[in-house]
Design a protein around this nucleic acid. Structure first.
Lengths: 253, 253
DNA sequence: TTCGCATTTTTGTACGACAAAAATAGAATG
DNA sequence: CATTCTATTTTTGTCGTACAAAAATGCGAA
């Protein structure tokens, strides 16, 4: 069924294209066409060799490139698994660089500020456009949050879930993906943050304030509450990493 | 059946990691330490072979992985160039996946909506926090925009620049990187959009409205103006790509 | 000096090989 | 019969070598 796929090299206009590039493009198209459904195994390397008439070197390079682009998930010594790209796959692809950026001066602060900025806008949006089911989800998450106050471990999970509801309100799949990305990127710092039921209680009250503002359809109050909430949280995580430039902020501990 | 196989994605904790992984990590550290400054050439493959005592296969895989993460820029048949990762490098790393997402149903709309959402928030922020120099930059961009009305080519550039000023106001390098990413991702669609001096004039007037709202410190008016502006633009680009799900919006041409 | 050409280096690709891990088949057991 | 353990076959990760083509380099000529 698969005759020589002809490896057209016109895809890359400049310079002589790598052989692997054409294979990458072709496999990409086969994936997006649906020849291999999400979760399917890619053919063995030798099979692809035979199909495309290329050496294993090229096959491996092509697979590596596909893996780096998130279209296949290649675990060590396992057959590559086809992954239809999603918004979270896209964001996990940046994970590597982001980890570098986070270790650079001010990286955490920059990323955190973006999160605060985005989430403040999300609260405004929720206050103006949240539907009944959104508010129900928010209240449910808030209740779970309250019940978890004594258990810091569980509180963190419900905390993340509460904020996650905000990302679901716009009904745009990019936002939940962003939420996942933010939490996974910033999680290392949060986990080092000292926790306590008292601290959890304060955070819970902030969540309730945000929730109430949304219910009251008051975007300004919601935005203010969220900025206070996350601003206070920043003061707590600030000490968990050594970043000389982090002190550039309001100089008070 | 995919049972969750405990996902051992810890890069190097497991000893069974790929040989290339260790090399990648080491080279990463050498780059971030500054052993090779930005723009320097990476040593030849054979040299790295000798240094790390590994085969060329592994060297090449390591370089490919570094390239996919944006730490080196490997052009065909040229020595890899070291690139200190920045926020835009991070976002260009997602480019590959995003292009797939854009071709999927509703992908353009989702991304565009996120842009509108973010930019609306940026306008609010600018209206509340723009400094004198920000407003000067905004006015300057607006003037350039006005002068470019007859020349659609140049108008597009000044259009992008005007919106870019909004991303600079928060003084957070993530935002300009996002602006670059958005424009490059959505550019193919914009370029196919038909343009005309009349259309340019309308867009310019929208820009002026946004600028005035910022100067007047009126976030609500600014947000409204921007949403009208980008909403109208969407109606114009909507026809430039064939996406059946794009008609889910208000059904009028 | 600068330009053009020949030589060397380096990259891209191919082929073959082998150890180790995974996948599979087959035998032993209840 | 189903199940578990074992042996065999695949498959992957890595290595080595080889060679064409492109780039880098050096060298001679104008």
């Amino acid at each position: 069924m698969l005759e020589e796929p002809e490896l057209p090299s016109e895809t890359v206009s400049r310079a002589t294209a790598r052989a692997a590039d054409a294979v990458v493009v072709h496999i990409e198209s086969r994936i997006s066409v649906g020849e291999w459904p999400d979760g399917a195994f890619l053919p063995a390397e030798r099979e692809l060799m035979a199909e495309y008439g290329i050496s294993r070197t090229v096959v491996r390079e092509a697979i590596a490139r596909l893996a780096s682009r998130g279209l296949v998930e290649a675990r060590h010594r396992f057959r590559p698994v086809v992954r239809r790209p999603g918004y979270d796959a896209a964001l996990s692809a940046v994970g590597g660089i982001v980890s570098h950026l986070l270790s650079s001066s001010g990286g955490v602060k920059n990323l955190y500020d973006v999160r605060v900025f985005l989430e403040a806008a999300l609260v405004r949006h929720a206050a103006l456009h949240a539907r009944r089911e959104d508010i129900a989800a928010l209240r449910s998450a808030l209740a779970a949050n309250e019940q978890a106050i004594p258990d810091s471990q569980r509180f963190y999970a419900t905390d993340v879930a509460f904020h996650g509801v905000l990302y679901q309100v716009p009904r745009n799949p990019v936002f939940p993906a962003l939420h996942k990305a933010f939490t996974s990127w910033l999680a290392p710092h949060w986990e080092r943050m000292l926790r306590s039921p008292e601290r959890n209680r304060i955070n819970y009250l902030s969540h309730r304030e945000i929730c109430e503002a949304i219910v009251e359809r008051d975007p300004d109050a919601g935005e203010r509450a969220l900025q206070n909430h996350l601003g206070a949280a920043w003061e707590y995580v600030r000490g968990t990493f050594a970043d000389p430039a982090a002190d550039a902020g309001p100089a008070d501990a």
